[in-house]
Design a protein around this nucleic acid. Structure first.
Lengths: 347, 347
DNA sequence: ACTCAATGTACAATCGATTGTATCTGTGAG
DNA sequence: CTCACAGATACAATCGATTGTACATTGAGT
């Protein structure tokens, strides 16, 4: 490995002195401006390599008033105990990161003060990036609306809201809730629970789809079967155990996430009941694990990775000053073992 | 919501003009310097709020030559098809993010050009942050060594290497491989496969522990049982299916990750064999899902979240100019159903 | 009243790059 | 030989904050 002449970082001025030109020429040479002679460019590029010169990004960002960074904020719901390590978020993050990489943008992941996202305005989330992607709305729809009026472009993954002034990308939650429930009804289940926090906009829409399906099948909605199950596995388990221990009987459940569904399956198994024989389960999202769990998970697919791409592309359009319409991605039911529709292979 | 006087962002100079003082005083007042009168401070803070003034972070970072940001690079192994969405990475990320948040630092997640991490020197990973955390070494140990000599502090999660010049934090891989194998041997298994890519430093150490355990029990190592299983679920499945279809029989497997183990269980189940009756499985990491899968997963626990904290704390010490010793976290076997040691509750 | 501290503010250099404008150099035409 | 012109490079303002140093104000002590 060849030793670099200068180990310490040198400045553009120093390189200019070495090359016998001015900073301006160095800057233009390195950014391949047509105003610099081709020979000069090559010479400067070689000198830069030789002296181990790198453009100081901090100075550059400052000068250009931009960063090349996109912030991502996961609106983890505190009450629902949602974690960053939720596979849904992670897959979304993967889609976002991949797409950003293609556009040569970097990703800034914030430890958001979820309590009040307006505080983000002072933080690096807004100041250190060219745009912000919010994943989820939490219960801060109006705050998001307020932020949308700041000068940093943003897009939001979530549910369609009546008075929303930000650009939204999301799944078709009402349809998702409907097809999940409908599937269970068609399998003959009649006591179908709904697991999730209906205070969250997306879940509320799915819940409406759930009720619509029940109604169409002439099944009366039983409020005791709507349980505010947290997203976090351990806590979900507690909530489900409580339901299992109660006198309320059910033969199926529509869950708000696949993780919740997996937790439900484990809890139900431990209680001595069987999935799907005694209780059929439908998840939501179709995370990677859904098809590898035992039993495999029937679920409402959201193409999460693609959603990440759509979020990024929408944001980039906004950055270019274009107006961007909302996007609703279609929902699709993936039928696997946990809902009892497919015979288990082993038996 | 009160309307702010100025919607557009104002500069410190402008606020200074409004307040009738100079930039310097504003700067000191907002950073709570003792050199500014308490009354002046309050007055300035109120004016700042009134006129919606926020310190320009870009300018600040530029001036202070620092960022308040830590970069995290996941050394996803391409050959092994490891993804960012691997729960191991995600839990690690969670630990890191939490700990950084406590220190009021932000997190920069890079789409690393894994091909050659030396290129990172030019990128925002090194230039836009005060320090870098590498998770994993891939096969670029020597490049990491080279990077360690740059002026940006860094720490690495991974295996202990002979000539390593960077600060390392990692699990006790040799011990982990040993206890996993030992456990299976004590359960009477004799044809124990090892799933993983031994070109990766950490896996190589576990493999050595595996062989040590075999030796101690007088079991001869069968090279056909060491399979280079990728980390990615789908690909892992292919590799395991191939083994199952071959003439090589085995009654247990030590896996390089829990995801790999879950994939193995699913694949084995589908082939008509049973876990753990026919083939016992031990995972690695103890990710959250390990205890919720069916069957629950016996695994070698690495306290991943804590590891994230240790990485951060080590890096912060380096940032303070201290010298930091390597850390090796202990490994512990968590015995659950998949290895056959615990009777399944349902039977 | 006068000096001396102590306290509070103003001044101005500085960080490292980008970019519009001015200047220089060299060539070909008249 | 001069002039026009184009191409290449130099000059210098600029982005927005931080901070060492110099100056001004105030009050206490004598």
């Amino acid at each position: 490995m060849s030793q670099n002449k200068a180990k310490a970082r040198i400045t553009m001025q120093e390189l200019a002195d070495i090359a016998g030109v001015t900073r301006g020429t160095i800057s233009r040479a390195l950014s391949d401006s047509p105003r610099v002679n081709e020979k000069t460019k090559t010479r400067i590029r070689e000198l830069a390599k030789e002296y181990n010169y790198h453009v100081n990004q901090r100075a550059r960002n400052f000068r250009l008033q931009k960063t090349g960074v996109i912030s991502v904020v996961f609106m983890l719901n505190i009450k629902s105990e949602q974690h960053m390590s939720d596979p849904f978020f992670l897959e979304m993050l993967g889609g976002i990161a991949d797409c950003l990489a293609e556009h040569d943008l970097d990703l800034f992941l914030s430890h958001a003060p979820i309590a009040n996202i307006l505080e983000l305005q002072d933080s690096r989330v807004f100041q250190n990036s060219d745009g912000v992607i919010f994943v989820g709305q939490g219960e801060q729809h109006s705050e998001l609306n307020a932020l949308a009026n700041s000068d940093t472009p943003m897009v939001v993954w979530g549910a369609e809201m009546p008075d929303q002034s930000y650009c939204r990308v999301g799944g078709d939650n009402a349809a998702g809730g409907y097809i999940a429930t409908n599937h269970l009804l068609e399998l003959g289940r009649r006591h179908i629970a709904f697991f999730g926090d209906v205070n969250l906009p997306e879940i509320a829409l799915r819940f409406s789809g759930y009720k619509k399906a029940l109604k169409e099948h002439g099944v009366k909605f039983d409020p005791r079967l709507q349980i505010e199950v947290p997203f976090e596995m351990e806590r979900a388990r507690d909530a489900i155990e409580e339901l299992l221990g109660s006198r309320t009987k059910f033969d199926a459940a529509v869950c708000s996430s696949d993780v919740m569904a997996l937790s439900a399956i484990a809890t139900i198994n431990e209680s001595g009941l069987r999935v799907p024989a005694d209780i059929a389960i439908v998840g939501y999202d179709d995370i990677g694990l859904a098809r590898y769990s035992s039993p495999t998970l029937t679920t409402v697919r959201q193409n999460i990775r693609w959603a990440g791409r759509v979020l990024v592309e929408s944001l980039l359009s906004l950055l270019n000053g274009q107006t961007v319409a909302d996007t609703t991605l279609s929902s699709e039911l993936i039928v696997r073992q946990s809902s009892g529709a497919v015979a288990a292979k082993k038996t």
